[in-house]
Amino acid sequence: MAVRPRLAVWKFASCDGCQLSLLDCEDELLAVAGEVEIANFVEASSAVAPGPYDLSLVEGSVTTPEDARRIQEVRAQSKHLVTIGACATAGGIQALRNFQDVEEFRRAVYARPEYIATLATSTAIRDHVPVDFELRGCPINKAQVLEVIAAFLHRRRPTVATGSVCAECKRRGVVCVVVAQGTPCLGPVTQAGCGAICPAYRRGCYGCFGPQDSPNTPAWSSRLGELGLAPGAILRIYRTFNAAAPAFRAAGDAAVQEGG
């Protein structure tokens, strides 16, 4: 066999769920390991080989001065860098701090806040280094991460849809929860990729894949208002797992204005 491409998986501030998605590819895990050399995946292996790496998957956001430095090192060792998940792509749930006083957060959680080193913001990897591809989701979809690995292995474009969750709902034959139940849902402004699971389970999408490529949040926010959401609830629906993604951040800001 020819030299296998070398894969590395990195963790920044996150819940580990996206790298776990790789280990959740039970049917494909050993096949992937046959096609690539898993050179650095600390959660899965004690054997850590030094870089450079052909493909680095980066999970998590940058929240500490140390991590801001470390991501530069990761980039320098990686031919291709792909972010996996909402933290790495938009700052994640912890980016809610970006809208608050972090000092106050620190005091609220820790009795001795002086021990805690943190930045005032949680930022996406793209804000620090160039990124070759961003895979969305909180967590990512495991079929998509396999597709991305395969695509980078074979230098083709990953087949990852950038349109709305609605398309997945319709393809899946799910009855629209907005139209048929009046349930607030972020599906029309959220990127596909999850398989429209929330509407399929009769709840509204909560936007964990971040904004779709043409998100008309002004129109959607006004419809959410008609469905009975108060500005505070509209603010919360945008400000969850992709709060700092530009389109959702703007929609949240608009809801704050609306709320006065």
């Binding site: 920044f12 749930i93 912890q94 957060f105 609220a108 609830a233 919360r236």
Partner: peptide, 17 residues
């Protein structure tokens, strides 16, 4: 693990969240 302040960011959220 960088602190993520869950207890703080839960404040002001709906109980359903």
């Amino acid at each position: 693990e960088p602190p993520r302040f869950f207890e703080a960011l839960l404040r002001g959220r709906s109980y359903l969240e």
